[in-house]
Amino acid sequence: MNVLEQEIKQLIIDALELEDIAVADIDSNEPLFVDGLGLDSIDALELGLAIKKQYKIKLDANSEDTKKYFASVSSLAEFIQSEQQAA
Rank of each mutant, 00 (worst) to 15 (best):
L47V: 03
G38L: 10
I42R: 05
E64K: 12
G38T: 04
Q81A: 15
S82K: 14
I13P: 00
A15L: 08
L11C: 08
G48E: 03
N29D: 15
L18I: 09
A86D: 09
A50F: 12
F79I: 02
I8D: 00
S75F: 02
D60L: 10
K58N: 09
L32P: 06
Q54R: 11
K53P: 01
A71K: 02
D27K: 12
I13A: 13
I21G: 08
K67R: 09
S75C: 01
A50R: 04
D40L: 05
L16D: 05
I13C: 12
Q54C: 09
K68W: 04
T66V: 11
A15E: 05
D43Y: 01
D35I: 04
M1P: 00
K67C: 03
Q10F: 08
Q84A: 06
I42D: 08
N62C: 04
Q84K: 14
Y55D: 04
L59N: 07
P31D: 11
E78Y: 03
L49E: 09
K53C: 01
V34R: 13
S74T: 12
L18N: 06
N2D: 14
V73Q: 04
Q6M: 13
N62Y: 10
E64A: 11
L47T: 03
I80A: 07
K53Q: 13
A22F: 11
L39T: 06
I80G: 03
Y69R: 00
F70G: 01
L59W: 06
F70T: 00
I26M: 08
P31Y: 09
E83I: 07
S28H: 06
F33D: 01
S75N: 11
A61W: 12
G48L: 03
F79N: 01
